[in-house]
Write a protein that binds this DNA or RNA. Structure first.
Lengths: 130, 130
DNA sequence: TTACATAATGTTATATTATAACAATTCAAA
DNA sequence: TTTGAATTGTTATAATATAACATTATGTAA
């Protein structure tokens, strides 16, 4: 369980924006959208993004350099992420599969080593784009 | 099975460099290293990298914006990649586990959808850094 | 061989993504 | 109420990646 720190002003503004977006948002597109609210510089955006990622409110889609809000209530989620990405329309969906997360959380490599964190990105075509 | 296209000059130079490197290499560090061989511009590097990724000779570590040579002989490997990454020393190892790759290749999401490609990055501490 | 298509190269410029460094402010805990 | 940590504001710059266009090499089929 986490202590639920309330978000700060910039964090809240940026989280709300990402949370409402139907698609992953990129940092400079976020910057553009929040300039009217007084967030003027890239660093202000990146700092909020870093924090939001750290506390698990958003995730970074590494292959796209973009951010989506987390809608998965699980605690572990910032350390164990999986997404499906449509290679045509770029729609991204967070995958929450107990089977998958258990499998990966317990995965051991050749040396018997377990890992504390993972990120998995699946690529293919979404229903609409098939 | 692939038809084995021989690499072009730039591709070969850049592949050799990455292949010899004990750690993932970044594009501009590659550029710096190959300037004495006549590769002067970022685009020349990125084009070779793109091609090498496409044909599966190297992989991109998305969370690090860096590239490593593939040492996995499997054909599928450019569409199905998994790595372990040490969060202290940044050592990256390609994971080749039949179990893992079968599990992921056959993974279906809630809608019963399968994916043509995936990339998985595990994070933790390597043996030396524990 | 010639000519055609395709891929690769070279080059300049620029777009995109991200962080360094430092000063000022906020805010909760001791 | 002070003090320490986190957050913010700001300017500048670093790091990563692509656009656009001209040229050169390579393979393939007539």
């Amino acid at each position: 369980m986490h202590k639920e720190h309330p978000l700060t002003k910039n964090q809240q503004i940026i989280f709300d924006l990402i949370d409402k977006s139907p698609e992953p948002m990129k940092a400079y597109s976020i910057l553009f959208s929040v300039q009217k609210k007084g967030i003027k510089a890239p660093l202000q955006v990146y700092r909020a993004l870093d924090k939001l990622v750290e506390i698990g409110k958003i995730h970074k889609i590494e292959s796209r350099n973009a951010f989506i809000a987390c809608h998965n209530s699980s605690c572990q989620v910032s350390k164990a992420t999986a997404f499906s990405i449509c290679e045509i329309c770029e729609k991204v969906t967070e995958i929450s599969s107990t089977g998958l997360s258990k499998y990966l959380a317990n995965f051991k490599d050749k040396d018997g080593m377990k890992y504390s964190k993972y990120n998995l990105e699946f690529f293919g075509l979404c229903k609409k784009c098939r």
